[in-house]
Each structure stands twice: as C-alpha cells, then as structure tokens.
Design a protein around this nucleic acid. Structure first.
Length: 602
RNA sequence: GCUGACAUAGCUCAGUUGGCUAGAGCAGUUGAUUUGUAAUCAACAGGCCCGGGGUUCAAAUCCUCGUGUCAGCACCA
C-alpha cells in the first residue's frame, strides 16, 4: 500500500510538502489509524466543499477541521441547505472522487491571498487569524481552498464517507457573530468501518432515553405544560423511588441529616448570596404582596438557613445536610434535551459544614461515596480537579490549601484525575465527575465544590475551643447530579434493561389460564412483602402474546405459572436476555428475588 | 437565544400540484376463544390535522405570529 503522508517530528506532512522540503519520516498509510483518519477526514471536508461549491456557486467557506466525531465545514450560501440536500452533496462528492483529481499545493504570500480572496469575507476572516507571511492553497480540479493541510495526494482515495448532520454555527464560535451553515460528516479507510460506525450511531439512537422513556412509560413532556418540565409516569416514579430510597439510606449511614428548604426565598437573600447578581438571568422571580421572591436555582441558601438555626461548636463539625432539592433554572430553549437538560430538576444535593482541617477527610469520604455508586452501576468515570480561575474570591493560602486537599484526597484513593487549570468556581476549586456510558459517551454528573464565599457572605461561624468565632468551610456536593439527568443516562447505559434493584417492575407474572390467577395474586403479594414490584399479565390474550408484551417492557424476570407449578409449588422462570427457562421452587424463587433486589447498598 | 428542519388518533406513521366524509398498524373498548413460553379472531370506538391571525370559491396542505420538538451552535449543572 502506498503512503498517503509521512510523520516528521511528530507532525503529519503531506507527500507533496515532504518532497519539496526533503523531509523523511514514518510513512502513514490509508488505514483507520488516528493519523491516517486525520488526513483522510480533512481531505473529505475539502471534497465536500468542492461539491458544495459546484452545486452552490456562490458558496463562501470558513473553516473545515476534523473533530472527534469526523469533520465539518462551515460555509455560507444564498440558498438554504437542509438535511434533504445532503444526499445530493454526497453524490456530487462521489462523482468528483471518481475523477481522482490530484490534490496539489502551492504557496502564495498573505498579500496575494488577500487579493485572491478579496470578495470572500469568510476567507478574509480566516486569514485574520493567521500570523504567517505566506499561506498555502490546495487545489483539486477547479476547486481551490486556503488551507494549512495536510491532505491526501488525491481525492480518488476518498470512498467511504457519509454526511451526517447539517446545522448552524456561529462564525468563530462567537454568538455575537453571524451564523454560518455547518455540515458534519464522517469518513473511514474501508467500508466495514463506516458501516460499523453507522451501526454504532443507530445503536445510540435505539438507546435514546427520550425514545425509551416514552416506550417504557417512564416520563413525558407536554406542550401545554411547558418546555423543560418533565412529567414522571408511574413506571418512572417507581424507578426513581427505588433510587431515592437507596440513596437516602446511604446518606444516613454517612451521617447526613435530611433537611428541606423552601422552594422560593426573598430576593434579598439571593442578593446576599450573590446569585441575584451572578445567576439572576437563570432564575425565575415572582412577587408576593409587593415583595420580590426568587425560585431557588440551588439549595445552598436553604441549607445555610438550617445551619444558622442554632449555634455550633467545633465539636459538632462536620455537619452534613442533604436534600433531594427541586431547583428551577431558566435554560435557553435550544439547550433543552430530554431529561439531560431541563428547567426543573431534583438534585441529590448536600452541604457539608466543616473546619479547614477537615476538608481533606471530608473530600475523601465524598469521593469514596461517588466511587461506591458509580461502580455499582458499572460506570467508568473520571474526575477533573479544577483550580483557581482568573476571577476568584478568597485568600491565596486557602486556595492553595483547598486545592491540595482535593488532590490529596484523590491520591490517597489512588484515583486518577485530570487537572483543569483555572476551571474552578469563583468561590473555590472543585472536582467534577464525568461518567462514560455503555457506548463510550461522557456525561458530567456529580460535582464536589469547596466554598469559602458563602460562609463569608452569610457570616457563618462556630465556636472554637477558645470560644472564639470561626468561619466554617462549605463543601457543596451532588453525586448523581440530578435524578433527571442520571436516570436519563442510566436508561441509555442499560438500554432500558435496568438491573433488578432499580427496575420499575421486578417481576412479570404470567398465569397460563384464568384458573391460575389466584396463585399469581398470592405470589404477587408475597413479592410486595419483600419490597418487590410485580405485574400480573392475565389479560384476555394468548399466552404467547402476554409473554411477548412482558418481554417488551424489559422486565428483568418473567415467571409463568400453570397447573404444573401450582401442583409442585414452583415457578417457571424465563430470563430476559437468554430467553432460557428454568424452574425453581417458590421458596428458592423468593429468596433469589430478595437477594437480587437487596444486593445493592451504596 | 441563533441557524435549519419538523408538528396529522394514546404511540408510530400515510395523506399527490390547495378540491368530496382525513387513513393504516399498534395500543384501547366489546364479543368469541382459555391458551405451556415473542403477536387468536371479529366488531366498535379514537381527530379543533399544535394554537392565533390571514390568503382563497375552497386550507391538514399556502403566508404570518406564537407554542412545542429535533440537529447543531452558543450557554451550562
């Protein structure tokens, strides 16, 4: 196989450039390696631009880089381009590719380039950002584009690609600028990989929690209710209740006290906390008897009021309050996305009030809590430690201490973490927990934040051992993040096949005929006694039909009972995944269920 | 919020260049059938075609303003 580029000093260089400069290096062949795909996809972006230019001659192009999920090109045309046009563009791309135009590179001075692209304000905008004296132009057939490269030697090498999305994107990623059209695409070296990629996308679509949530009757949204306000249906309610009760127990074990703050508080309080000034745009306000109130977007102020309810001694610390806090945030309509991004949601929120000396051990405890939960759900996760940002409040020494405390906590647990330099909150550094789901996508859920700002603003204090007044530190933490987002992620992670301990329904009972209904009911009652939800499928349908319906609900276990079972006091179990059947005595069955339902403790 | 697309029965979707009483499958109801591991048969019922305004002899279909949804951007927990 011929090389498509070479790697010289860790830089990918196209063949033409390498020859001109006499560079040598490791050959890159057309395969699905990272380097090869980089070149291939970049050239595919150019091929797409060539096709667009031929179909829409007035098209002007901005930039067309490769990204994690393929490539895109931003451009502008007079005609509007929609999803339906992608096929047409793909077809044109293929017909160009068949002509096997070589990709030729030449260089011109910046001044010449500015003349050459004088009537193209987008290219001029690109050149604004290039400090060099000369720029390179790549030419394939009639089409020329300003580009740094590297590119394939010929567009004939491009065969297996797909245009996936069309949308808008701001010029330079700045919402103040004009909006361009962006088309995303993907390319691979061989047909199989493209096919596998498209199948992976289809798999992701199948797992989409919005689709599954609808099918499984977990939750819904309604136009007349309002955007971003989820409605929890019975099945979703059961799932959520199981999660809540498991987590409640886990909090109590770790010394957290349940508390609850009001849904809205006077605006003056939000001014004290700084939310009014810094977060007001995302808040909902109302007026009661001429006094302005703000609906809470976070729970911290409520918990501070709990703390203030009595005087505290250093002997009391740490104090941990937790609440399944319902919060409202005004998100942009365009940001809303199923349960992942909503306007009303419930956080598994807690605030730990402690001394500066206790920060580290408290962080360790929370990190351990996070690990317990994430590993139970078989999530891979990573943590990011975010350090002091440019704009920050508080003493340098405290920042250093607290940042080090976060890092120590991670090191002591031998947990790997990445540093996000300057990514902390203005009041303190934080650890963000990013989980990776079953098909490799990352989601930010939990967060652990050190806060020196709110204790200061609310003048919180405790009595030290010399009876002096000392300001406590607040640790703000959420583990799931929110029940909404976490359940959305869980749904996609398990593709709706929830494990027994959180499944909306644990067991489906299918009596063979009407005469077996009583036994089914007895069994169902016994299951309730061991904290297990079951559903009896006794409708006037064929046995096959009822088993099919039960299967489709993704219930973890189906038991069929008929004459045989009643006579022998057994149940016939049908496994969700393998569809295999086996028999257990009723006693064994109940023990098995009890074990499975209660096997998880966070 | 921005760009583009979309909105028809509980759900998934048909509905031709504006033209008769807006259709189908599933789900639902009612019968018949009483079933041994993925769809028994039949009948019935279901709609302000997202909501206001407009154009037209005539609007699910065209225009317009909202609302909601989708893709991405931007924002962000």
């Amino acid at each position: 196989m011929n090389a498509i580029a070479i790697k010289h000093n860790d830089q990918i260089i196209d063949l033409q450039t390498a020859e001109q400069l006499g560079f040598e290096g490791e050959q890159i062949h057309l395969d699905n390696s990272e380097d090869s795909l980089e070149v291939l996809r970049h050239s595919t972006a150019h091929l797409m631009a060539q096709a667009i230019k031929s179909l829409y001659p007035d098209a002007k192009f901005y930039v067309g880089p490769t990204v994690k999920e393929g490539f895109y090109y931003d451009f502008k045309t007079q005609t509007e381009i929609g999803e339906g046009d992608l096929k047409k563009i793909e077809k044109q791309m293929l017909s160009f590719a068949k002509k096997k135009y070589p990709i030729e590179k030449y260089e011109i001075s910046m001044d010449e380039a500015k003349v050459k692209f004088a009537d193209d304000h987008l290219k001029l905008a690109v050149m604004e950002r290039i400090p060099d004296e000369t720029v390179s132009i790549y030419k394939q057939g009639e089409f020329e584009d300003l580009c740094r490269g590297p590119h394939l030697p010929s567009i004939g090498l491009i065969r297996y690609f797909k245009l996936t999305k069309v949308s808008g994107a701001y010029l330079g990623g700045d919402s103040k600028n004009e909006m361009l059209t962006r088309i995303y695409g993907i390319a691979f070296a061989d047909k199989e990989s493209l096919k596998a990629h498209m199948e992976m996308l289809a798999e992701a679509a199948k797992r989409d929690h919005r689709k599954l949530g609808n099918e499984m009757k977990l939750f819904t949204f309604r136009e007349e209710v309002g955007a971003g306000f989820p409605i929890w249906l019975p099945a979703g309610g059961r799932l959520r209740a199981r999660l809540e009760s498991l987590l409640f127990k886990a909090h109590r074990k770790r010394g957290y006290e349940p508390v609850r703050g009001p849904e809205m508080l006077k605006s003056d309080l939000w001014k004290t906390s700084g939310h009014y000034q810094n977060y007001g745009e995302n808040m909902y306000f109302t007026s009661i008897d001429d006094v302005e109130f703000g609906v809470k977007p976070m729970n911290c102020v409520g918990h501070i009021k709990v703390y203030e309810d009595e005087l505290h001694s250093y002997r009391d610390l740490p104090i941990k309050y937790f609440e399944y806090g319902v919060v409202h945030r005004h998100e942009f309509t365009g940001a809303l996305h199923g349960l992942f991004r909503v306007r009303e949601f419930t956080q598994d929120d807690a605030h730990i009030f402690c001394t500066v000396d206790q920060i580290e051990e408290q962080i360790i405890e929370v990190v351990d809590f996070v690990d317990k939960i994430m590993s139970t759900f078989e999530f891979d996760y990573k943590m990011m430690v975010s350090t002091r940002p440019e704009k920050a409040v508080g003493d340098d020494k405290v920042w250093e201490l607290s940042t080090q405390a976060l890092k120590n906590a991670m090191d002591k647990n031998s947990l790997p973490y990445e540093i996000d330099e300057g990514g902390g909150a203005f009041y303190g550094p934080k650890i963000d927990i990013k989980i990776t789901d079953a098909i490799g996508r990352e989601w930010q859920c939990g967060t652990i934040q050190l806060d020196f700002n709110l204790p200061e603003r609310f003048e919180l204090e405790y009595n030290g051992d010399d009876n002096e007044k000392i300001q406590p530190v607040m640790i703000h933490r959420a583990i799931l993040g929110s029940f909404e987002r976490f359940i959305g992620i869980l749904t996609e992670h398990y593709a709706g096949e929830f494990p027994m301990f959180i499944a909306p329904t644990q067991v489906a009972i299918v009596p063979v005929a009407d005469v077996h209904k009583d036994y089914a009911k007895q069994l169902s009652d016994k299951l309730i006694d061991i904290n297990t939800d079951s559903e009896i499928y006794a409708r006037n349908d064929s046995l096959n039909k009822r088993i099919r319906v039960a299967e489709k609900t993704r219930v973890p276990m189906i038991v069929v009972i008929g004459d045989e079972e009643i006579k022998n006091k057994t149940v016939a179990i049908r496994d969700r995944r393998t569809r295999e059947q086996y028999n257990l005595s009723e006693e064994e069955f109940l023990t098995l269920i009890q074990t499975k339902v209660n096997e998880v403790n966070f």
